Structures are given as C-alpha cells and as structure tokens.
Simulated assay, not measured.
Amino acid sequence: MLFVIHLLASAGLAWSLGAAHLGGGLLAFALLYLIARLLGLAIGRLRRYARSLEHGVSFCLWFIAQVFLATYHVATLVLARRVDVEPAVLAYPVTRREVDKVTLLGTLLTLTPGTLALDYDEEQGLLYIHALDARRREDVTEILIELERRLLAWLDAGKAEGVTP
C-alpha cells in the first residue's frame, strides 16, 4: 500500500513541477524515496518500507542480470558445434516451506533459461528442478541458494524488527 501511495505522490509531484514524463517521474520517485528514507529514521514503518524497496530494486536488477547470463550460457550451448550438455533433475531442499514462497521461487527459476521447476514435495521440503546443463552441480546449487537467499531477504525486509521470518 505504501508503494502505491509513493507512486501516486511521485506522479503528482512530477506533474506539478511540469515534468510529466518518465524522467521527471523517476526523479520525483527518487526524491520522495530520499525524504522517506530520512524520515524513516524516526518512523519505523517508513524505515521498513524503504528497506523493502531497496531489497526489491536490488533483487530485480540481480535477477535480470542472471537471466541475461543464463540466456548467454544457453545460447553458447545451443550454437556450439558439438552440443555437450548433461541435463539432470535435482532435488533442492528449500529453506522455507511455505507454498507461496516456493511457488514464487519455482516461477523465477522457470523464467531463467536452462532451468525448470518440476514439482514440490511439501512433506520433505524438496523442490525438483530440471537443469539443462548440470555438469557442475555445485554451480547450479549455488545459483539456487543465492536466488532463494535474495528473494527471502526482499520478502522479509518489510517485516517489523524482532519478528523472525
């Protein structure tokens, strides 16, 4: 809800300053964010909102970079003279077993070229993933761990201090 208020206030500020275009809107969004960040030192709810916004932007930029890297990796595999891949189905133990978080993780994995979320076993907490090239399983697992860590950091950033995720 705070994000919608922030977005509407940014649009109103950009329009009132006569900069009713994308650059003006982004500038107004950044200015209001800085004000919220400064006020957030005194107001806990604004501090949580600013932290959530920071984690969200950081996660989105990181994930877009990962999609581009995975796209490049898959393209080099497909365009090589000799296709040398080792597909595999991996069982990944998730950190948090809530179905909504596992569904989001699986969806993000499926958006990444070369990986596909297949199934989730709620009892064991295992997410089954198909990887196009699993010659180095450690690399695939490291990316999964980092994706889950960053996603959970973003989702938990807006919670009140002292609340355990």
Rank of each mutant, 00 (worst) to 15 (best):
A91P: 03
T71D: 13
R37A: 14
R45W: 11
S52D: 11
D84S: 05
L108T: 08
I43N: 08
V102Q: 09
T95N: 13
R81S: 14
L109M: 09
S52W: 10
R82K: 14
R51L: 13
S58K: 03
E98Y: 00
L34K: 11
D100T: 11
W62A: 07
L61G: 08
A65C: 13
G106N: 03
A70H: 02
T71N: 15
G40K: 06
K101S: 15
W62D: 00
L90H: 03
L108R: 11
L104G: 10
T76M: 12
L61H: 03
L39A: 05
R51A: 15
L61F: 14
A36P: 03
I64H: 07
H55D: 07
D100L: 13
R81E: 10
Y72K: 14
R45K: 12
T107M: 01
L41A: 02
Y92A: 01
R51H: 11
L108V: 03
L90C: 01
T71I: 02
H55Q: 13
R82A: 13
Y92P: 01
K101G: 00
F68V: 14
T71Q: 12
W62P: 01
A42M: 10
R37M: 10
L79Y: 10
T71G: 09
A65M: 09
F68Y: 12
Y72V: 13
F63G: 08
L79Q: 00
A65T: 11
A65Y: 12
T71P: 01
A80T: 07
L53G: 04
G106Q: 01
L61T: 12
L90Y: 03
V85H: 00
P87Q: 01
Y33P: 04
L41Q: 14
L109G: 02
V89T: 15
A88T: 02
V57I: 12
T107E: 06
A88C: 04
A50Q: 10
V85A: 11
V94G: 00
V89H: 00
G106F: 02
L104W: 07
E98N: 05
R37Q: 09
T103I: 08
L77P: 04
E54L: 10
L79V: 07
V89Y: 08
P87G: 01
L38P: 03
L104E: 03
G44M: 06
A70F: 02
L77R: 01
L105V: 00
G44T: 13
I43E: 14
R51W: 10
Y92S: 09
L109W: 03
L79F: 15
F59P: 03
F68A: 11
A91G: 13
T107A: 10
R37G: 06
H73G: 00
V74T: 02
A75F: 11
S52E: 05
I43P: 06
C60F: 15
G106K: 03
A36I: 01
D100I: 08
F68Q: 10
R48Q: 01
A75T: 06
R51V: 01
I64C: 13
L46F: 05
L46H: 06
G40P: 04
V99R: 15
Y72D: 06
Y72E: 05
Q66W: 10
A80M: 04
L41S: 14
L34H: 07
Y92V: 00
